Simulated assay, not measured.
Amino acid sequence: MLPRVGDSPKDRFRSLYLTGETTIIACKADPRFSYTLYIPESAWDAPERELDLLVAVHGTMRLQSLYRDAFAGFGRFNNCVILAPLFPVGVRGDMESGGYKYMVEGDIRYDEVLLAMVKEAGDLISRSFGKFMLFGFSGGGHFTHRFLYLHPDRLKAVSIGAPGSVTLLDETMDWWPGIRNFEQVFGRGIDFAALKQIKVHMSVGALDTESWEITFPEDSPKYIPGANSAGKNRNDRLHSLRQTMEARGVEVWHDIAPGVPHDMRGVFPYVERFFTDVLTDRLPAPGVR
């Protein structure tokens, strides 16, 4: 949407900064965090038209705009708002980079921060997003499947990309490798009936076999019994995650991208196809592809 000569300053601002790829916006609920959006022109031109929302969560490098921009075409042609949050390194002054991956960091609940962003994005365009789609790769893949356990009632579909560590639906291990004390940590249990209603996609590169960054030695401050139990590398761990979900009755679409290492861009075509199939109700049978 281009500004026009007769536009008011408010309309010019909306055209330049709140249409298409937007500026970066501080989260009102907690300004330590921010988000950027892709807003299709139809959000302003056709306010009566229904919009979907897709949230795309960055990995450890925090390439926030890359995730938004990757989905911009999808958003335009599917009448879908894209929200890409930014969870910076060291928000508590300690250079911690992995807090958002595990949902809890000190007094921060990252799932609640994201839900606040979703509400604020809806308020911005006078919409309400009761349910939305969620994607994350690497560190974002950590976030995505753990958010799924906490809020299946808010999700339409999720795509989990190559997480370095996974939380199995295993009640013999504590959080985060398992869920034995899940209710104690979060004050709520997992709604397995709701979980089974969600369309779940997983993706990983066939060559994503490096393990140096995701192996937890016993002297690591992040080590907990079971930390390495899901497998050696991201392929192994995603396979274990799929198995534990399928054992609970969750249907999973699992794409292994040939020739692709640990690279979001390499798995993105599979992710985009999954969400397109979700919106057009054309999903093939679940399973490994």
Rank of each mutant, 00 (worst) to 15 (best):
V252T: 00
N233A: 06
G130V: 04
I108S: 01
G20C: 09
G266D: 09
Y67N: 10
G231Q: 06
L148P: 05
L168G: 01
F186A: 06
S138I: 11
G249P: 00
G141I: 07
I160H: 08
R146T: 05
N235L: 15
V252G: 00
P221Y: 01
V288I: 14
H145D: 05
K101G: 10
H239C: 06
L148A: 02
Y149F: 14
E112I: 10
R242Y: 05
G189Q: 02
H142N: 12
L279N: 13
P85Q: 09
I256K: 00
G140N: 08
A257G: 02
R76N: 12
L124N: 05
S211K: 10
E246H: 01
L148R: 03
L37N: 02
E171M: 14
R234K: 01
I108Q: 01
W253I: 03
F192D: 08
D107R: 00
D30T: 08
G164N: 10
L86C: 03
S159R: 01
F77W: 15
A70E: 15
N233L: 07
H58V: 11
S42C: 13
E105T: 00
H58Y: 10
D219I: 02
Y100Q: 04
A70H: 13
L51C: 10
Q243W: 07
P3Y: 11
A162Y: 04
D255Y: 12
D153P: 08
W212Q: 11
E48H: 13
D30Y: 07
A70R: 15
P258E: 11
I24D: 13
V89C: 09
R265D: 11
V267E: 08
D191W: 00
P261M: 12
R68P: 01
F186T: 07
F87A: 05
M103N: 07
M1N: 05
L279I: 11
V158G: 02
S229E: 12
K196R: 15
H239T: 03
L124Y: 10
V55A: 11
V278T: 10
A84M: 04
N228E: 04
M264Y: 14
S42Q: 12
G189W: 02
A157G: 03
P258R: 03
T280H: 12
L241H: 07
Y223H: 11
F192S: 09
E210M: 12
Q184L: 15
P85E: 06
D153W: 09
M245E: 00
P47F: 09
